[in-house]
Simulated assay, not measured.
Amino acid sequence: MSVFISVVSHGHGELIKQLSCLATLAKKFTVVVKLNLEERTLIPYLEQNRIQYIDEQYGIGFGHNNNVVYSYCKKTLDMNEHDFFIVFNPDLISDLQQIDKLVHYMSKNEVKMASVNLFKDEKFILPDNSIRNFPSLSQFIKSFVGLGNSAIIDKGTVTNPIQVDWAAGSFLAFKASHYSLLKGFDEGYFMYCEDIDICYRSSLLGEPIIFHPEIKMQHLAEHANRSIFSKHFYWHVSSVIRFLMTKVKLTNSKSSID
């Protein structure tokens, strides 16, 4: 059983070198960095620290990038169905022990998909709102106009591993066979909601994601501009529409089968 960690870098080279987290993880696990634009100064660092990298197919979406890494791990690095595939943001900080604990739990309890407890600070005081209930259209609208988000789950009330609807794509761990069964991320999403979508599709298969409050990592999240004139706003709205339409379609399809 091996662990493969997928990291997408979109100009994150200096941050990756500064944090040195991936270099630490690569001492025990197979780390693969997918470059989404040309970063020639990062490549020597990756090679020096025995970090695998894919330097092609620039400008594709988040989910598509991770699917490319998954395919590379299977075809080139001999990842098999018993291994674990972890989607890991370049702005996360974790040590080896946290990954070990998660993989041990998933293996022991036959968990197919899991996430961990993300915080905005190194002392693990400021929580990242990284676990939520599946959103409705009204919740999306309220969130867009600044009226809060009732889909957010208060992590402070969670003390043991529990099932949740979805967790942020900043960190998602999969049994490799389950990622394959899901056919990876839906590449129709360029950015935003692909994490909701894959968690929703997994739940329909009877495999909800398991959140682990005791496994903690720091997330140096910088949220992109979402003004109505930004491309991020467009990506977000189009992804919301796609998810809501897909949710209805998949739910109806499952109901007809049942």
Rank of each mutant, 00 (worst) to 15 (best):
E194Q: 15
I241F: 15
T157I: 05
I210C: 09
P135M: 08
H178V: 03
S143A: 14
E222V: 14
G148H: 11
C199E: 00
E214Y: 03
I131S: 02
K155N: 04
F185P: 00
E187G: 04
F190C: 01
H223A: 07
Q163T: 12
F229Q: 10
L147I: 10
S202C: 06
V158H: 02
D195F: 10
R242P: 00
K142C: 12
H178K: 08
S138F: 13
I198W: 05
D195A: 04
S239N: 06
Y234K: 13
W166P: 01
D165E: 11
I153L: 06
A168Y: 01
G156V: 08
L182G: 02
E222R: 15
H232K: 12
S202Q: 06
N225R: 12
S202L: 07
S177E: 14
A221D: 09
N133A: 10
L172G: 00
L147V: 06
R132N: 08
P213A: 02
P161F: 07
S130Y: 08
P213V: 03
L147Y: 14
G148N: 13
L182I: 08
R226S: 02
S170D: 02
C199K: 04
F171T: 01
A176K: 09
R226A: 03
R201K: 11
L182D: 00
P135C: 04
M217W: 08
P135N: 04
C193L: 13
P208A: 05
H219W: 15
I196L: 10
D128A: 11
S130A: 05
F190R: 02
Y200P: 03
M191I: 12
P208D: 08
C193N: 13
Y234D: 07
A168N: 11
L137F: 14
I196H: 04
P213K: 06
L181M: 14
P208G: 08
F211C: 07
R242Y: 05
M217N: 12
D197Y: 07
S170N: 06
G206Y: 10
Y189R: 08
F190L: 01
G206L: 10
S150Q: 13
E194T: 13
L205W: 06
L205C: 04
T159V: 09
R242D: 00
S138K: 15
L172T: 07
A167E: 03
I228P: 02
A173G: 09
P161M: 04
F140Q: 05
E207N: 11
W235D: 07
D165P: 09
L147R: 15
D195Q: 08
I141D: 03
A167Y: 07
F233T: 07
D154V: 03
N133W: 12
A224I: 08
F144D: 03
F171E: 00
I141H: 03
E222A: 12
G206S: 10
F211R: 03
D128W: 13
L182Y: 01
P208H: 08
A151C: 11
K142W: 10
F229I: 12
D154Y: 08
A151W: 11
K231T: 10
I198C: 07
S150W: 07
K155D: 01
A151H: 13
N225K: 10
S138Y: 14
A176S: 15
W166G: 00
V240F: 10
V237C: 04
C199A: 10
I241T: 11
G206V: 11
G156H: 10
